[in-house]
Simulated assay, not measured.
Amino acid sequence: MLGFYSEEELKKIGFKHIGVNVKISDKSSIYFPETISIGNNVRIDDFCILTGGTSGINIGSYIHIAAFSAIFGSGGGVTLKDFSCLSSRVTLYSLSDDYSGHSLTNPTVPKEFLGVEKGHILIEKHVVIGTNSTVLPGVTIGEGSAIGAHSLVKESLDPWGIYAGTPVRKIKNRKKEILRLEKELKQ
């Protein structure tokens, strides 16, 4: 299919696991694919960056990652559970430099001069993250939550909430109709 890697090309990339009906743009950048697992029915659009690193990335099934999004699993790893979705320009950082001034920053500096924060990011089932949002290390976004555009998520969020802002705050509860739709889809 034009614009997406073929099934044969996906196998050659060397993913830890790759499911069926996976469409990854041939304009995406993939680093350390041997630490990246991808489920079934996944689409990753143009100009996305996936960096598995030592901790890896686990992508479930029925997931869409829109254009220009980035997932950095190098610090503590990243898990996206089934039916989650990243809108365009969403960034998930499982590793972040310490910007307090107590250490140097950036990847050109030797490790002994760096201060970093790292932690696993867990995106539970049915989570939707709006465009231009950022999720920082160690965050869990509870099942069914929706994150508004241009949001900063620096602390874990409860399930079934609608959150927005910098940093995010809960706006209201989210409906659970999607659970019925998931059951219908799987029948």
Results as ranks from 00 to 15, higher is better:
V116I: 13
L122Q: 08
G73R: 07
I57D: 12
I123V: 12
V153D: 11
S94C: 04
G148N: 03
T79M: 12
V127R: 06
N132W: 07
E143K: 13
S55C: 14
G161R: 01
I65K: 10
G130V: 03
V127A: 09
E143H: 02
L92Y: 08
L114W: 02
F83L: 07
L179G: 09
E117R: 01
I171M: 11
S61Y: 05
S133Q: 07
L50V: 08
G119L: 02
K111D: 14
V109F: 07
S100R: 10
D98M: 11
T108K: 14
T91F: 05
H102E: 14
I59H: 11
I63A: 06
G76T: 03
V153W: 07
G56C: 09
L104S: 12
I63P: 10
H64N: 13
A66G: 13
G77H: 04
P137A: 01
H150R: 10
G138D: 01
F47Y: 15
V42M: 09
S74Y: 00
H126R: 03
S88I: 01
N106D: 13
S145V: 02
G75H: 00
P110E: 12
S87F: 03
V168Q: 02
P159F: 01
G138C: 01
R169S: 02
T105I: 15
G148P: 04
N41I: 08
W160P: 12
G115A: 07
G60Q: 10
G161A: 05
T140G: 04
G77D: 10
H150F: 09
S61C: 06
V128F: 10
G142A: 09
N106L: 05
I121K: 07
K118E: 14
C85P: 03
I178T: 09
A164R: 06
P137F: 00
V139R: 07
R174T: 05
E155C: 06
I49E: 15
W160F: 15
K111Y: 13
S145C: 01
K172V: 05
K170W: 00
T51S: 15
G77R: 08
D98T: 12
V153L: 03
D46A: 09
G53M: 00
F72G: 07
